[in-house]
C-alpha cells in the first residue's frame, strides 16, 4: 500500500503531469466557454422572426417565379426559343412551395443537450485519453530513462509488483480525473443547455444512455493510458510510446487506407483503427460500398457493413492485453542496466 501511495505522490509531483493537467483543464474550459457563445436559446420572438423571414423569402421566390414565367410567355409569343433558357412549359411546373422555406433554417443555433451531448462526451474522452497517454508514457518512460526505476527496484526488488503498482497508480489517477472532470464537463454543458440551449426530452432512458456513453469514454481513457504506459515501458523511453502512436496512426489511417483503395478491398475502412474508435463512441459505425451501385439505372442503396461497439471492444481489448502483457513479460525477463 505504501508503494501505491508513493507512486500516486510521485505521479502527482511530476512536472509533465501538472503541465498536462493544466493544459487539459484549460483546453476543456475553452471549448465549453467558446461553445456557450455559439448557442442561443430560442424565444417566441426569434421563432416568429424566423417564420417571418421564411415566409418573406417564400413570397419573394414566388414573385421571382411569376416574373420569370411572364417573361417566358412574352418571349414565346415573339416566337423565341424559350425552352433552353426557361425550361419546359416556361418553368410553370416549378412553382416554389411553402415547405421549401422552413423556419428552422433561419433560426440561430440552439444547443440540444439530448441530441448533441454524446458527441461532446467523445471530445472529452479524446482529450483525457491524450492526457492519459502522454502522462502514462512519461511516468514510466522517464523513470526508466533517468534511472528512477532502477533505484526503486533496489528498494523493492519485485519487478512485477513495482510495474503493476505504477500502472495501478496511473489508472487510479486517470480514473479519478475522468470522473471528476467528466462530472464538471456534464454540468457545464447542462448549464449551457439550460441557459442558452435546450434540455428538452431528457428522460431517464436518455440519462441512462448518456451514462453508458460516459462509461465507454472512461474505458477508452483507461485503455489509452495503459497502452501508452506499456509501450513506454517496453521501450524504456517516453519517446517509444509517442513514436509508436505516430507510427500506428500513419500505418492505420494513411497506409491501410491507401492499400485498400489500391487493392479495391470492399469496406476497406473496417481495417482502419479510427473506424473502431468511432463505433466505440457511437455504438456502431456503418460503412458503405458505393462501387456496388449502378447510378445509370437510377437511385441506389449501396451495400453496407456494420462495425459494432462490441467488435471495437474486442479489437481494443486485444491491443490492451497484448501491450500490457508484453510490458510485464519484458519487465520480468530483461536485464536492467
Amino acid at each position: 500500500m505504501s508503494l501505491f501511495v508513493t507512486e500516486l505522490r510521485r505521479l502527482g509531483k511530476r512536472r509533465v503531469t501538472r503541465l498536462m493537467l493544466v493544459l487539459l483543464v484549460v483546453g476543456l474550459a475553452t471549448v465549453a466557454t467558446a461553445f456557450s457563445f455559439s448557442s442561443e436559446k430560442l424565444s417566441p420572438a426569434t421563432v416568429a422572426a424566423a417564420e417571418a423571414k421564411a415566409n418573406n423569402n417564400y413570397q419573394n421566390s414566388v414573385k421571382e417565379w411569376q416574373r420569370s414565367v411572364s417573361e417566358c410567355e412574352a418571349a414565346a409569343a415573339r416566337g423565341d426559343n424559350t425552352e433552353e433558357r426557361y425550361g419546359p412549359n416556361c418553368g410553370k411546373d416549378y412553382q416554389p412551395q411553402p415547405d421549401m422555406f422552413e423556419a428552422n433554417w433561419y433560426l440561430p443555433y440552439q444547443f440540444d443537450f439530448r441530441a448533441e451531448f454524446p458527441m461532446f462526451i467523445a471530445v472529452f474522452a479524446a482529450s483525457v485519453a491524450l492526457f492519459g497517454f502522454i502522462v502514462g508514457a512519461s511516468f514510466v518512460g522517464a523513470e526508466w530513462n533517468t534511472g528512477g526505476m532502477m533505484n526503486l527496484l533496489l528498494w523493492r526488488p519485485k519487478r512485477l509488483t513495482v510495474l503493476g503498482t505504477k500502472l495501478a497508480a496511473l489508472l487510479t489517477t486517470v480514473l479519478g480525473l475522468t470522473v471528476v472532470l467528466g462530472a464538471l464537463w456534464t454540468a457545464a454543458f447542462w448549464l449551457i443547455a439550460s441557459q442558452r440551449g435546450s434540455t428538452a426530452k431528457m428522460t431517464a432512458g436518455v440519462w441512462r444512455s448518456i451514462g453508458l456513453d460516459g462509461l465507454r469514454a472512461l474505458a477508452m481513457t483507461l485503455l489509452v493510458a495503459a497502452i501508452g504506459f506499456a509501450l513506454a515501458s517496453l521501450g524504456r523511453h517516453t519517446a517509444m510510446a509517442l513514436g509508436a502512436a505516430v507510427g500506428i496512426f500513419a500505418v492505420s489511417e494513411i497506409g491501410i487506407r491507401i492499400a485498400v483503395a489500391v487493392l479495391g478491398v470492399q469496406f476497406g475502412d473496417r481495417y482502419v483503427l479510427s473506424t473502431y474508435a468511432q463505433s466505440w463512441f457511437l455504438k456502431q459505425a456503418e460503412l458503405f460500398d458505393y462501387h456496388t451501385c449502378q447510378f445509370s439505372q437510377g437511385a441506389c442503396e449501396p451495400a453496407t457493413y456494420m462495425v459494432t461497439w462490441q467488435q471495437s471492444a474486442v479489437v481494443f481489448g486485444v491491443a490492451l492485453v497484448g501491450a500490457v502483457a508484453a510490458a510485464f513479460w519484458t519487465m520480468r525477463r530483461r536485464d536492467i542496466s
Binding site: 505504501s2 508503494l3 501511495v5 508513493t6 505522490r9 510521485r10 509531483k13 511530476r14 512536472r15 522517464a142 523513470e143 533517468t146 534511472g147 528512477g148 532502477m150 533505484n151 526503486l152 528498494w155 523493492r156
Partner: peptide, 21 residues
C-alpha cells in the same frame, strides 16, 4: 547516480523513504 532531475533531493529521498516505509 541517476535521479529524476526535476525533483528536489528531499522529494527524491522522501519518496524512497515512503516506498520503504
Amino acid at each position: 547516480p541517476q535521479f529524476f532531475p526535476h525533483f528536489s533531493a528531499r522529494d527524491t529521498l522522501g519518496l524512497l523513504a515512503q516506498a520503504g516505509e
